[in-house]
Amino acid sequence: MSTTQTLTRIHIPTPLRAYTNHEATVAVAGATVGEALANLVARYPELKRHLFDDEGRLRSFVNVYVRDEDIRYLEGDRTPLGAGDELSIVPSIAGG
């Protein structure tokens, strides 16, 4: 493992802070979005079922933004992270 790791700040939606010791942002290591999210749920295991479905895919209403772009329009899980990048977990809100 490299000794100089990129730490990415992840912004946590308010209700999920119940599972992050009430932290609004969490800094995790990871060279890609997928690694950063995996490290996030490894640190806070109770978060996992709220972000991922039983097949380990992001839930359909969970969007991940980096540099104000939806990772679905970048390289998805493989989107590389650089110094200063921040991730936001953003729900799609809808109903009837």
């Binding site: 209700p15 933004y65 729900p91 009837g96």
Partner: peptide
């Protein structure tokens, strides 16, 4: 039906944070 898009959510979250509030 209604939909709130992620960009609208992000904008609201930033504005709320600047006021010391959260989206609850």
């Amino acid at each position: 039906r209604y939909v709130i898009t992620p960009p609208d959510y992000l904008a609201a979250e930033r504005e709320a944070r600047a006021r010391g509030l959260d989206i609850v």
